[in-house]
Every structure is written in structure tokens, then in C-alpha cells.
């Protein structure tokens, strides 16, 4: 950490703004563990390294292998699919729930309190809960004998994908519900009053007032959802480990398995770089086409 005494004196002497040195510790920490690693991962992606010896330069081999590998391509496609499906599942559910619990009835507030509980559980614990709950032999469905619940949730590739989508939704819907609840509560009541005078029904009000008024919330929530599902690791790792087969081997899982299980750290680094690139690209696109940044500055001024 910086020495407050010395730089403080410097700060007060300068006539104008706060000294840069105050931002230096944050910048240093962030650089050391986020920026420097980005450089290292770039370097490692051109080396062969099994985690034991020292990395040795191999040129573009890893890149060629990673980009032509069926498994990694599949992971990329799967990640895109996961993002879209997750968005399609989580957005309507959390939007409707959020608008609903924005009502001030006591029972709705109470509902909101309970809805929130999944957010408190760590990803590892949550995945363990569902792994046991959905176990094909000793899980809830199997022991309860309800045909509706008794499926091969995590063992069938198709089903495992959607089960993962559900478990992730279970964890994140509460968060997005909160966003929508807060957003809805900010809609001026006068809008609804005017609409009511015009004789608009509940559905019309929802379509013509609530939805348009929530557009910034929708953008915010969608951004977080999309970028979030790109990097989703913890729950999937514990729940399915990327399986069965390649069914849930999303990009971060592919990176982990390639690096830490097959011991090809170089190739895994190339996948990491792809992950970062896609993440940045996605953020930029969303910011550019959604007016997210305008909204941010608007908010900042609020």
C-alpha cells in the first residue's frame, strides 16, 4: 500500500485534482492479477506446457489445434446455444416474477424474500444439491416414483443440457427478479393512472407501459445474463463435469479439462484467449447497439 503521509502532502500541494497515487494501489493489484495474466495467457498459448516442466515455444500449434478441434468447436457452439437458451428461459421468468413481486401486497414481499434464497447458496453447494436431487437411482424422482420427475436428468446428453440450463436459472432468476422488481417500482404511477383513465386493461398496461419502461432494465439484465453464461463454470463443473460426453462441455469447461485434466496448458491458454475475446466482443456489441453506455451515464447522473 502507498505511504499516505508523503503522497498526502503532495496531494494538498497540488492546486487541482486528487493525485494519481491514490488510484495506484487499485491499479497495481488489478494489473498484477488481471492484466499481467492476460499477457501471460497470450504467451502460454504459443507454448507447450504440461504443468510440470517449463513451457517451451511451439509457435501456432496450439492455435491450429484449438481452432480445428471438433471438441473445442463443439464447446463454442454449445456455449452460444447455452447463452441463448438461458436467456430465453431466465428473462421471461424473472421479468414476470419481478413485476409481480413489485406489488406492495405483504404476501408478494414475502414471496420475494423466499425467492431470494437460492442466491445465497454457493455454486458448489447448489450443484451438489441438484446432483443428489436428480440422481437417477437415489434422487427425488427415482425414490418418489413420480414418472414426471423420474428421468435421466444428468445422464442423457440432451436432457443434461437443459437440466443445466434449469439449475443455472434456479440460481440466477432471483437476481434478475430483483432487478425487475426494482425497475418496476421506479415506473411513475402517473403513467398507469393516465392509462387507467383511458380504459386500458391490465394486459395493455403491461405491454404499453411496463415493458417499454423496463427497457433499460431488460438491457442490463440481458447483458449480465449473456456475458455471465459465457463464463459459467462452477455449477457445471460440480454438477456434470462437462458430461455426459460433451453435452455440457462449455468453453470454460473445455478450457479447464484441456488444461488441468489433459495437461495441455498451452492449448487451454489458446481457449482462454478465445474466451476473453468473445467476452469483450460481446460486451462491445451490446454496449454499442443497446445504448447501455448512454443509460449508464444517465444513471450516473441520477
Amino acid at each position: 500500500m502507498s505511504a499516505p503521509g508523503a503522497s498526502g502532502a503532495a496531494g494538498s500541494r497540488s492546486s487541482g485534482g486528487a493525485p494519481f497515487v491514490m488510484a495506484a494501489p487499485a491499479l497495481a493489484l488489478f494489473s498484477l492479477f488481471a492484466l499481467v495474466p492476460m499477457a501471460i495467457v497470450g504467451y502460454l498459448s504459443f507454448t507447450r506446457w504440461n504443468g510440470l516442466g517449463s513451457p517451451s515455444w511451439t509457435g501456432s500449434d496450439n492455435w491450429r489445434e484449438a481452432l480445428t478441434s471438433d471438441v473445442t468447436r463443439h464447446a463454442l457452439w454449445l456455449t452460444a446455444k447455452f447463452m441463448v437458451v438461458s436467456w430465453l428461459v431466465q428473462t421471461p421468468v424473472s421479468l414476470l416474477l419481478g413485476v409481480f413481486v413489485a406489488g406492495r401486497q405483504r404476501y408478494r414481499t414475502l414471496l420475494a424474500v423466499v425467492y431470494f434464497v437460492p442466491m445465497l447458496i454457493s455454486a458448489a453447494a447448489l450443484a451438489i444439491i441438484f446432483k443428489n436431487l436428480l440422481d437417477p437411482n437415489f434422487g427425488l424422482g427415482a425414490t418418489l416414483g413420480l414418472p414426471l420427475l423420474d428421468h435421466n436428468w444428468l445422464g442423457d446428453p440432451q436432457l443434461a443440457f437443459y437440466t443445466t440450463v434449469f439449475v443455472v436459472a434456479w440460481q440466477f432468476v432471483p437476481f434478475h427478479t430483483l432487478l425487475y422488481q426494482a425497475g418496476t417500482r421506479q415506473i411513475p404511477a402517473s403513467l398507469y393512472e393516465a392509462a387507467a383513465i383511458d380504459g386500458a386493461g391490465r394486459l395493455a398496461q403491461f405491454r404499453h407501459i411496463t415493458l417499454p419502461q423496463l427497457r433499460y432494465t431488460i438491457v442490463t439484465s440481458s447483458t449480465l445474463m449473456l456475458v455471465g453464461s459465457l463464463t459459467y463454470f462452477d455449477v457445471v463443473f460440480v454438477l456434470t463435469g462437462g458430461g455426459p460426453g460433451l453435452a455440457t462441455r462449455f468453453l470454460p469447461l473445455d478450457m479447464y479439462i484441456t488444461g488441468f485434466q489433459s495437461n495441455e496448458m498451452g492449448r487451454a491458454s489458446a481457449i482462454s484467449v478465445v474466451l476473453v475475446a468473445v467476452g469483450l466482443l460481446l460486451s462491445l456489441i451490446i454496449v454499442r447497439f443497446s445504448g447501455f453506455s448512454r443509460m449508464r451515464s444517465q444513471q450516473a447522473g441520477m
Binding site: A18, P19, F30, F233
Partner: peptide, 28 residues
């Protein structure tokens, strides 16, 4: 409270940093 270009640059860097997934840096 500051004005310098370095500070503005630092802030932009942090904003960009929001998009760096921690998973992607685990190997380095």
C-alpha cells in the same frame, strides 16, 4: 476528484476490466 489523463485512463481500464472473465485467467 481528480482530473489527470492517467486517472481517466485508469477508470476506462477498470470499465474494460468488467468484461474480463476470471475463468479465462486461471491458468496464468
Amino acid at each position: 476528484r481528480g482530473t489527470g489523463r492517467l486517472l481517466r485512463w485508469t477508470f476506462s481500464l477498470f470499465l474494460l476490466g468488467l468484461a474480463i472473465p476470471l475463468q479465462a485467467t486461471i491458468i496464468p
